[in-house]
Amino acid sequence: MTTLTTDPPRNGLSPLERAYARLGVVLITPTILVFLLVIVYPLLAALYLSVFQIYTPTLQGGFVGADNYIELLTGKAFWSSLRVTIVWTVGTLTLQIVAGVGIALLLHQNIWFRSLARSLVLFPYFLSTVVAVLVWKWLFNDLYGALNQGLMQLGIIDMPLDWLGSMPNAMIGVILVGAWKYFPFVVIAVLARLQTIPENLYEAARIDGAGPIARFWDVTLPQLRSILTVIILLRAIWDFKEFDLLYLLTGGGPVTSTQTLSLLVYQEAFGLNQMGQAAAYSVGMMLVMLVFMVLYIRQTKEKA
């Protein structure tokens, strides 16, 4: 790069460079202070709280050492929630990727009113989860819901289905709504990448006699590989920690069949009033997520 951002020599900084470094620190200080207050301190506090037993309404309790972590490792709650979280993440992520890439390929074509179609597809992603959940709860309504009625009119089912109150329907339901809400993210990212694939790659493949399907596998997909890695990691992290959608759609039910780790932490802290145990669960959850985070951060670093 240029003079401004090259590394200064280790010793003998010029007065100007030193002044610049000072200004840089001054500019970042407010951000650092806010970070310390609302992120770093709460993170450390979560670690600290996880070795206490605290009753939420009174905030009274005492030090219990590793008890909360022993409960995490030996109890059923954490592992069953982890399993639910993995089922939900893999299910909804797979649908998001397949639908996202498919729709992106279609919207990349020269169709009528393309920008309108793109806007319509993008919309669910920016919609409030509360709105999405209300709309889908109404669609899922047992008796009058459009989904059951529509499927019955089409003759696919002859009895209304109980969408959110029984298994495996509840899991299928949340996975579907999750896919609907978040696949536009994949569409936008893939569309942007598709526009940069050089046309001559397709020309060359065509001359070699490759049909549309062969062209997708041999040209498009390899070109999309790096962006897909990033999308999958990012969406895996976000789906893994999703709270609003699951909490509002099923509340984790029936019983705990859709209770992901985020919901478990919330339930333990504010439903069962065991704040220390909840903090321990949240630390456990973060450790699991750390794997994906490190992978993503490494991926981002590589490109930089």
Binding site: V38, I39, Y41, L43, A46, F243, V265, A278, S282, M286
Partner: peptide
């Protein structure tokens, strides 16, 4: 990338 539920209790 941090999950909100980790911060919610201390906050």
């Amino acid at each position: 990338l941090l999950p909100s539920v980790v911060l919610i209790i201390p906050l």
